[in-house]
């Protein structure tokens, strides 16, 4: 039952002690929904549509969890978080899982006491320039003015890149992405640098996207992935393998279209184990045997989600690149379902 605000206050003052964070899965089942922290708005990754339904690449991770645990991808409560509030929201239990384009770094993993369960998008910092600048590589940017968001790791990466390549640049420090784009379009800087996925998403919104190019160099590693609180390995396993199930499904050619056909049994034991027709992998995670099948039916495999939210057919238009399957020369690689 939902606690009212007033009673919630009373609970705080009066009762004190709260639910232990040890068994997130039990809490989630009791609440009947997963509280999932997402970005307040990042094109292609998480945004509410006209009906208030959250859509996007990061959002699909949460929906996959809903499908795995409740066989219903709508049983997710989305909590919008900003760059400042995201870690506290997770640490304090306001959200059960954070799927908010967060870079996996050592300090966040160890110092902030979180567990990154995998990488759903390999990003990196890139540059966008106007075509008539006549530049084809970031190494030709010597002496350029560069728009840069202040207080981000991108600022440090930029300094490193130019120092390593023995080049000079003039930074134009800017507060927000929206402002930076306006400055770049107004010609206040030759180049604008931020995560390559963000550049692609922004370029899609220009009135003349064909006159801007994103340079091929990626100057930093930004592995983005979902994360959970440290100390509940069972819950971390569920999130980790839900993501892996999507990746593995693409590798084995299981799509939302053919999953029902394949679930009748195939000659490939790996597919059978994944779809729950063989073995008891679901029970090991304390989930329904059809958990992975539900993910693929209701949300889709990794490639399907990628293509429908940020892929080349969408206005965002991101190529698979590093995010292709390992069999296709990318980095997406799921450990075996055994």
């Amino acid at each position: 039952m939902r606690k009212s605000i007033l009673l919630g206050t009373l609970a705080v003052v009066g009762l004190g002690g709260g639910a232990a964070s040890a068994a997130t899965l039990d809490d989630v089942r009791a609440a009947g929904q997963i509280k999932c922290g997402v970005s307040t708005g990042l094109a292609g990754f998480s945004a509410p549509d006209a009906n208030g339904v959250w859509q996007g690449f990061d959002v699909s991770v949460c929906r996959a969890l809903g499908a795995a645990i409740f066989a219903d991808p709508s049983k997710v409560q989305f909590v919008s978080t900003t760059g400042q509030t995201r870690f506290t929201a997770l640490a304090s239990g306001e959200v059960d899982v954070l799927a908010r384009n967060t870079t996996w770094t050592l300090s966040r993993d160890a110092d902030l006491k979180f567990t990154f369960v995998g990488v759903n998008y390999y990003d990196g910092q890139g540059f966008i320039v106007k075509k008539d600048l006549g530049v084809a590589s970031a190494r030709e940017l010597d002496g350029a003015t560069v728009c840069i968001q202040t207080g981000t790791t991108t600022e440090l990466n930029l300094a490193d890149f130019f120092r390593v390549n023995n080049m000079t640049y003039e930074p134009v420090p800017i507060e927000t992405n929206a402002e930076a784009l306006q400055q770049y379009l107004a010609g206040a800087c030759d180049a604008y640098t931020t995560d390559a996925s963000g550049l692609a998403a922004s370029r899609a919104t220009f009135a003349d996207p064909e006159n801007h190019i994103i340079l091929p160099e990626i100057i930093s590693k930004e592995p983005l992935g979902p994360l959970v609180r440290q100390g509940d390995d069972e819950w971390a396993d569920i999130v980790r393998w839900s993501l892996n199930a999507m990746i593995a499904a693409e590798e084995y050619g299981i799509t939302s279209a053919n999953v029902d056909e394949l679930a009748k049994g195939t000659t490939n034991p790996e597919i059978n184990r994944l779809l729950g027709t063989e073995g008891n992998l679901g029970a090991m995670l304390r989930l329904d045997p059809a958990w992975a099948r539900n993910i693929i039916t209701m949300v889709g495999n990794y490639g399907e989600v990628f293509n429908s939210t940020i892929g080349e057919a969408t206005p965002i238009g991101l190529a698979r690149g590093l995010n292709a399957q390992w069999t296709q020369g990318g980095l997406q690689y799921s450990p075996p379902f055994r």
Partner: peptide
């Protein structure tokens, strides 16, 4: 309200953010 209170209050407390 949004960050610090969360650390002070016992974990799992459902203290409404709007409140």
């Amino acid at each position: 309200a949004s960050l610090l209170l969360n650390y002070f209050l016992p974990p799992g407390t459902d203290f409404d953010i709007i409140l």
